[in-house]
Design a protein around this nucleic acid. Structure first.
Length: 841
RNA sequence: GCCGAAGUGGCGGAACUGGCAGACGCGCGCGACUCAAAAUCGCGAGGGCUUCGCCCGUGUGGGUUCGAUUCCCACCUUCGGCACCA
C-alpha cells in the first residue's frame, strides 16, 4: 500500500490528487465531518428565489417513537437522493423535516411508567434528530416543525375553528367505533380488517353511542375523486376511489300507510316496479311508528339483538339474512302497490338513507330474504333471448341487462346495467323527476371524519360549552388552548383532561357566564393534514404560514411515503386542502402534485419486522459499522423502491465493497501502463455518457436500484480502462468528475470527500448535474444477434448505423447461417435495425 | 364474493416501444496472494443432454406473431384493500 501510494504521487498530475498520503475509506471519519460542515455552511437551506424554479420535496413526517427504524431510512434516503438530484438540475429545492409528535404511544407509556408524554416526546425528538442527521440528508432544519409545540397546535386549533365557522366541523350523536384498549373513539378509516380492529393497537373495536366532533369530508367526496393534473400511483387512486365508493342511482320516496315518507336510495330505479317489500335498518327512526301493536314484541326483540350484534362481531356471523315484519305497509310510488315493511340488519343505517326498496327478482340479498320469508318475487327485467322469468320458480336473482317488463309504460325499455349514463336508466329517472316521485342521486361510502379523541396527548379541541349559549369556539385571540401539564393518569386510561380539577372551567365566549371546555383532543391526523404548510414558515406568528412562502413553494411537487396512508392521511390532507381553499386560506386544487410510495423492508426471515419476531434491523448499528453512504446505497439498490424486499445482512457488504472500490479507483494509481489508446479513451467516454443518460432517467423515474447498479457497472468498466492506461488523461478526469456528481445524491459523504481529494471546488452538492454528450454516448459498432427461425444462432458485429441491407448481407455471410440454409434461399428475413435479424427458413 | 398488485436462477432483482432472458449484487465453486485465515484480486455458473453442439426454460394451459417475461384468453398461487354499500 505504501509503495503504491508513493508511486501514485509520482505519476499523478496535481489536479487529480491533492493529498500526498493515500488512505483507506473510513466512513466513520468523513461522514460526521461533512455533516457538520454542510450544516454550518447552510448549503441545504432553502430560501425563496424567484429566479429559479422551485421544487418542494416532502417525505411523510415521522412519529417520534424514539428510534429511527430501517423503514424510515428506506423511505427517506431515496427521497433525499432524488431531492438532491433535482437540486443539481437547477431547482431551488426545499426538503423539510419535522415530527408528528402528538399521539397515543407516549401517553400509554406515561400510564405505565409515569413519565410525562411531553418529556418523553421531546427526549425522543432529540434522539431522533441525531439519528436523522446521521443519514446525511439535505434537510433544512430551520424549517423543522413539531406538531406538539404550542406554536404549532395553536394553528391546528385555529384551523378547527375556521372549519367550524364554515359549517365543516359539527357535533353529532352517532354510533361510533371505540377502541377499548386505547380508550378512545376512532375514525372509520382507522378501523381495519375483517375483525374491525384498531389500526394502532390491533384490538377489535366496539360500538358506542356518543356525541362527537366530525369534519364534513363527505362534502368533498366528488372533488376527492378528481385526480386531474395529479401524478399519483394508480394503486392509491384505486384505493381512494373504492373507499369513497361512489354509486349513481336515484332516491325515491315511499309513503307509509301512517303517512310518513321513507326515502330510499337505489342504484336500480329501473327495477322500481319489482319492489315487493321494503326493509329498514333496525335503528331507522320510523321503525317504532310503523310497527303495529301485534308485531311490537318481535320488533323490539330484533332491534335489541341487532344492537347487541353490532357490539359483538357483526361480520363473523354467517351471511344468513334475518329480519322481522313490522306490520306496517308502504305504497310503491310507481304502481301504487301496497308492500310490507320489514326490518333487517342487512340494511345499514350508515349508508344511503338506512332504508331500501327490496327488488328480490334482481338483487341477490333481497332474493335470499324474500325466499326465506316467503315474500313476493316479480321479475321486471327480462334478459334477451332467454325464457320468460318466473318469480315463483327463479332460483337466483337476475342482475344482468335486459328489457323492462311488468313496468307499465316503461315496458320494453332496454337497461344495460348501472349508472346514470345508461339511456334506459336516464329515461326512468327523467320520468321519476317529472312525476316528482324521485330524483337522480349519487351516494358515497365515504363518511364524515370523526376527529374527537378521548385522550390527553393531542391538540385540545378549542370549543366551549355553555348551559345558555351551547357550543362556541374559543376566541382566536385566546389561542392556543394550552394542554395543562400538571396532570395525572389513571390506570383505566381515562383522559386526564376530564379529571383535571380546574382546566375545563372557563367562561363562555358569548355570554361570559361559567362554561366548560371540551376535554377531547383532536385526532393526530388533523395535525398531519397541514404540516407541509407549517414547514413553509415555522417561525411565522401572524398565521399558520407566511403567504409569501406559500406562494413560492406550494404545492408540494413530490411527496413520498407509505401506501398504508392511502385512505387515511392522504384523504384527510386532500380534504383539508380543499376545505381551506374554499375558505380562502389555500390555493389550487391539490396540495401534492406527485406522489410515490415506497414498499416495505422485511426482516431477513421474509416476515414483517417486529420486536417480538426479533428480526428488526437497527440502522444505527449499520451506520456505525458500514457508514451511512453504504446503508443509503444498499437501501436504494436491494429492491425496487416501490416494492420493498427482505433485508439481507450480507447484501450490504456488496455496497460497502463497491464504495471501497470507488475510493480506490479515484485515489490509487494504476498498476498498468501509463499510455492509453484512443480507442480506450473513446470507450471510456462512451460508457460514462451512456451511464449518465441512464442514471438521469432512473432518477426522474424513482428507479433507484438501477441507478446503483449502473454506477457499479461503470465502476467495473473504469477499473478496466484505468489499468489500460486511461488514468490521468483528460477523459479519465472527466469520467471521475461525472462519476462523483452521479454518486453525490446517493452517497453524499464519500462523493464530497473524493471531490475534495481530487482538488475540486467545494461542494459537489452545489454542482450542476452533468449533461449527456450524445456524440460520445453513441455506439460505433454493435453486436447484432442472428436468429434462424427465431432461435439465436450467431452474432455479428456491424457499424452502429448499418442499414438493413448491410446487416442482412453480414448475417447471410455467417458460416453458421449458411449451415442452416444448406444452400437454400431463406423464405423471409426480418431485420430490426440496431436490434436483431431473424432469418426464416 | 368484489377491487388491485405480483409470480423470472439458491436469494434480491435486471431486461427502453414485442427483439440476445438472467444485467448488477448476495451467496456458492475454483484459483491467486498467505505458514494459515480474513481481506483483496481473477475466473466460473439457469436446468438438462448423447457437451466442438443441441434441447428445455420467465406460475400453468392455450392463442396472436418471423419472434412473447412483454400482447390476448382461461386458470393457479401469493400478497394488499374492501366486504350485506342497496
Amino acid at each position: 500500500m505504501l509503495l503504491r501510494a508513493s508511486f501514485a504521487t509520482f505519476v499523478l498530475k496535481k489536479a487529480d490528487i491533492r493529498e500526498d498520503k493515500m488512505s483507506d475509506y473510513i466512513p466513520q471519519e468523513i461522514e460526521p465531518k461533512w455533516q457538520k460542515k454542510w450544516e454550518a455552511d447552510g448549503i441545504y437551506n432553502a430560501d425563496i428565489d424567484p429566479t429559479r424554479p422551485k421544487h418542494y420535496a416532502l417525505t411523510m413526517l415521522p412519529y417520534p417513537s424514539g428510534d429511527l427504524h430501517i423503514g424510515h431510512w428506506y423511505a427517506m434516503t431515496p427521497s433525499d437522493a432524488r431531492a438532491r438530484f433535482m437540486r443539481m438540475n437547477g431547482y431551488n429545492v426545499m426538503f423539510p423535516i419535522g415530527f408528528d409528535a402528538f399521539g397515543l404511544p407516549a401517553e400509554n407509556a406515561a400510564i405505565k411508567d409515569g413519565i410525562h408524554p411531553k418529556i418523553r416526546t421531546y427526549q425522543n425528538i432529540d434522539r431522533m434528530r441525531k439519528q436523522l442527521r446521521s443519514m446525511g440528508a439535505m434537510w433544512d432544519w430551520r424549517r423543522e416543525a413539531i406538531s406538539s409545540d404550542p406554536e404549532y397546535y395553536k394553528w391546528t386549533q385555529w384551523f378547527f375553528i375556521q372549519l367550524y365557522k364554515h359549517g365543516l366541523a359539527y357535533r353529532k350523536m352517532a354510533p361510533v367505533d371505540f377502541c377499548p384498549k386505547c380508550n378512545t373513539t376512532l375514525a372509520r378509516e382507522q378501523v381495519w380488517g375483517e375483525d374491525r380492529h384498531c389500526e394502532r393497537c390491533g384490538t377489535p373495536v366496539i360500538k358506542k353511542d356518543l356525541e362527537q366532533w366530525f369534519f364534513r369530508t363527505t362534502a368533498y367526496a366528488e372533488d376527492l375523486l378528481n385526480y386531474e393534473g395529479m401524478d399519483w400511483p394508480e394503486r392509491v387512486r384505486v384505493l381512494q376511489t373504492n373507499w369513497i365508493g361512489r354509486s349513481e342511482g336515484a332516491s325515491v320516496n315511499f309513503t307509509t300507510e301512517t303517512g310518513d315518507v321513507i326515502e330510499v336510495f337505489t342504484t336500480r330505479p329501473d327495477t322500481l316496479w319489482g319492489a315487493t317489500f321494503m326493509v329498514l335498518a333496525p335503528e331507522h327512526p320510523l321503525v317504532d311508528k310503523l310497527t303495529t301493536p301485534e308485531h311490537k314484541a318481535e320488533v323490539e326483540a330484533y332491534k335489541l339483538q341487532a344492537a347487541r350484534q353490532s357490539d359483538i362481531d357483526r361480520e363473523a356471523a354467517d351471511k344468513e339474512k334475518t329480519g322481522v315484519f313490522t306490520g306496517g305497509y308502504a305504497i310503491n310510488p310507481v304502481n301504487g302497490a301496497r308492500i310490507p315493511v320489514w326490518i333487517a340488519d342487512y340494511v345499514l343505517m350508515t349508508y344511503g338513507t338506512g332504508a331500501i326498496m327490496a327488488v328480490p327478482a334482481h338483487d341477490e340479498r333481497d332474493f335470499a330474504f324474500a325466499r326465506k320469508y316467503g315474500l313476493k318475487v316479480i321479475p321486471v327485467i327480462q334478459p334477451e333471448g332467454e325464457p320468460l322469468l318466473d318469480g315463483d320458480t327463479m332460483e337466483a336473482a337476475y342482475v344482468g341487462p335486459g328489457r323492462m317488463i311488468n313496468s307499465a309504460h316503461m315496458d320494453g325499455t332496454y337497461v344495460s346495467g348501472k349508472g346514470h349514463a345508461d339511456p334506459g336508466m336516464q329515461k326512468v329517472i327523467q320520468w321519476l323527476e317529472q312525476e316528482g316521485r324521485g330524483k337522480k342521486t349519487v351516494s358515497y361510502k365515504l363518511r364524515d371524519w370523526l376527529i374527537s379523541r378521548q385522550r390527553y396527548w393531542g391538540a385540545p379541541i378549542p370549543m366551549i360549552r355553555c348551559e345558555k349559549c351551547g357550543w362556541n369556539p374559543v376566541h382566536e385571540s385566546e389561542l392556543p388552548v394550552l394542554l395543562p401539564e400538571d396532570v395525572e393518569w389513571r390506570p383505566t386510561g381515562e383522559s386526564p383532561l376530564k379529571l383535571h380539577p380546574t382546566w375545563k372551567d372557563t367562561t363562555c365566549p358569548v355570554c361570559g357566564g361559567p362554561a366548560e371546555r371540551e376535554t377531547d383532543t383532536m385526532d393526530t391526523f388533523m395535525c398531519s393534514s397541514w404540516y407541509h404548510l407549517r414547514y413553509l414558515s415555522p417561525w411565522y406568528h401572524q398565521g399558520p404560514f407566511d403567504p409569501k412562502e406559500y406562494d413560492y413553494w406550494m404545492p408540494v411537487d413530490t411527496y413520498t411515503g407509505g401506501i398504508e396512508h392511502a385512505n387515511m392521511h392522504l384523504i384527510y390532507t386532500r380534504f383539508f386542502h380543499k376545505a381551506c381553499r374554499d375558505m380562502g386560506i389555500t390555493k389550487g386544487r391539490e396540495p401534492m402534485i406527485q406522489l410515490r410510495n415506497q414498499g416495505m423492508v422485511l426482516g431477513e426471515d421474509h416476515e414483517k419486522m417486529s420486536k417480538s419476531r426479533g428480526n428488526v434491523v437497527a440502522p444505527d448499528e449499520l451506520v456505525e459499522r458500514y457508514g451511512a453512504d453504504a446503508v443509503r446505497a444498499y437501501l436504494m439498490f436491494f429492491a425496487r423502491w416501490d416494492m420493498g424486499a427482505p433485508w439481507n445482512s450480507s447484501g450490504i457488504e456488496g455496497t460497502v465493497r463497491w464504495l471501497r472500490r470507488v475510493w480506490a479507483m479515484v485515489t490509487e494509481a494504476p498498476s498498468g501502463p501509463a499510455a492509453c489508446s484512443d480507442e480506450t479513451k473513446r470507450l471510456l467516454r462512451r460508457r460514462v455518457h451512456q451511464t449518465l443518460r441512464r442514471v438521469s432517467h432512473d432518477f426522474r423515474e424513482f428507479e433507484f436500484n438501477t441507478i446503483v447498479s449502473s454506477l457499479m457497472e461503470l465502476l467495473n468498466e473504469m477499473v478496466k480502462v484505468k489499468e489500460a492506461g486511461a488514468y490521468g488523461t483528460p477523459e479519465w478526469n472527466e469520467a471521475v468528475d461525472i462519476y462523483l456528481r452521479m454518486l453525490a445524491p446517493v452517497c453524499p459523504h464519500i462523493a464530497e470527500e473524493l471531490w475534495e481529494r481530487t482538488g475540486r471546488t467545494y461542494s459537489v452538492h452545489t454542482q450542476p448535474w452533468p449533461s449527456v454528450d450524445e456524440e460520445a454516448a453513441r455506439e460505433e459498432e454493435i453486436v447484432i444477434p442472428v436468429q434462424v427461425n427465431g432461435k439465436l444462432r450467431d452474432r455479428i458485429t456491424v457499424p452502429a448505423d448499418a442499414t438493413e441491407e448491410q446487416i442482412q448481407a453480414a448475417a447471410l455471410a455467417s458460416e453458421t447461417v449458411q449451415q442452416y440454409l444448406q444452400g437454400k434461399a431463406p423464405r423471409k428475413i426480418i431485420v430490426v435495425p440496431k436490434r436483431l435479424i431473424n432469418i426464416v427458413i
